[in-house]
């Protein structure tokens, strides 16, 4: 299923990656070469095969639903490109 240029732009939008129009044909070629490579999986009979969900069978451990960590907002926000009074600052999202 080769992708067209409109699909490349749509996928880039979904992935939140700005793509220059001039780069689209190049990306399209690369993506199509990878998709052509994975196409061989269609040869495999996967009838009645369970999709893998966990590579090592193990029971998920559960813990009490309680607060076990926290209380250091300055550490949480210290790496933010922009923060104010322990809030992350983003461009205006509501008019």
């Amino acid at each position: 299923m080769p992708v067209d240029t409109a699909t490349v732009k749509r996928i880039a939008r979904l992935a939140r990656l700005a793509v220059d129009d001039k780069d689209v044909p190049h990306l399209q070629n690369e993506l199509n070469s990878i998709l052509a490579f994975v196409e061989q999986l269609n040869e495999v009979n996967v009838d009645n095969v369970e999709p893998m969900t966990s590579v090592t069978p193990m029971e998920m451990k559960k813990r009490q639903d309680g607060v076990t960590d926290g209380g250091y907002a300055d550490l949480v926000t210290r790496n933010a490109p922009e923060s104010e009074d322990h809030f992350f600052v983003v461009p205006k999202v509501v008019e």
Partner: peptide, 28 residues
């Protein structure tokens, strides 16, 4: 490139053809 491929194989309409099939092959 990998983010784009990953987004594509997980996107609506392609999930079963790619991602689900790959997970079954992984079982095999």
């Amino acid at each position: 490139r990998r983010i784009l491929i990953g987004t594509y194989v997980l996107s609506a309409g392609y999930y079963d053809a790619y991602y689900e099939r790959a997970r079954k092959v992984r079982t095999l």
